[in-house]
Amino acid sequence: MEFKVKKATVVLTAILIIAIITSYGIYHFLSSGYMPDSTATLIDGAGRYTTIKHPVEKVVSLASSVSEILCTLNASEVLCAVDQYSTFPPYLKEKLDTVDDFNVGSGATPSIETIVYHKPDIVFAWPYCTVIDEIEDRGIPVYVLKYPDDMADIIDLIKTVGYIVGREGRAEEISSFMTGYVEMVEDRTKELEQKPLVYFELNEPGKTGNGSTIAGSLIKITGGANIAENSSLKYLTINNEYIISTNPDVIIKFYYGTEPNEEEMDQLKEEIVNRPGWSVINAVKNDRVYVVDYAECSTSPRLIIGLVRYAKWIHPELFNDIDAGELAEYVYTNIYGLKT
């Protein structure tokens, strides 16, 4: 007997076999989770090109601001290690204290060993990080942040981080919430002719900043005039008698505790009010010396709370309807997901 096989059968069988193999291949390919690398090339804050896997799944953050932003994007699970100052929201601090290898040390000189151990898809670092090249030499892309000059830079950063971890929707939600407040404040202050003079003081007596610092930018948006606005130095120690002679209407002192402590904040205010010669300053005379928690004025969504506080301090008459405490509660519950 001889087999008579029709050509058509052979062709069909062949197609069938190929189809089975291919579909098995595709099935295997899909089920193994293997996707052709989707990559993205970004220009980071230092103007360097960085190619990263997109969206990233494992992040080491050497900047507490980015750690905080990631948490607000509900993406805290991508963080495999953070620097020692990433202590907010509180669950990060708890993890820092309890989980080995979660703490990479300071953002300036982090432990390269710990970073390499985690094999992150991206490392976020400030320009002052001393080991950027060493990390990149080990094939780990580093996104160098830009020191933010104003509100817009921070909103941009939130969007960028949102894109990198693939949470654009949430980032958009947060940034439009923030933009809404910025626009509302700007709207109420833009027509003002009278701009109260404001002096803000950082950690040391006389230490302040010009217009292109975050605090300087907040003062501008909220309709105040920073007494060091036009200084050529971004951060400077300003002369004591210069402060007295410009006679600021509002003084804002920064508080740098890990947790706000009323008693320490009052001490800071007392110290300023009692400085020799300062009793003639309008802000002291009219009891307009305020202490602000540094964390509410730094690179994170909490900045919006700082903005509203500044607005109420500088133009109390314009912002009667807004309660900074309520806003803070809203931000902590809805953006940070913390129960207050």
């Binding site: 004591n240 008698e241 007295i244 002679s245 006679n247 020799p276 010669g277 300062w278 009793s279 003639v280």
Partner: peptide
């Protein structure tokens, strides 16, 4: 103000 600057500072 002048007095504060000269005498106190």
């Amino acid at each position: 103000n002048l007095r504060a600057i000269v005498l106190d500072v």
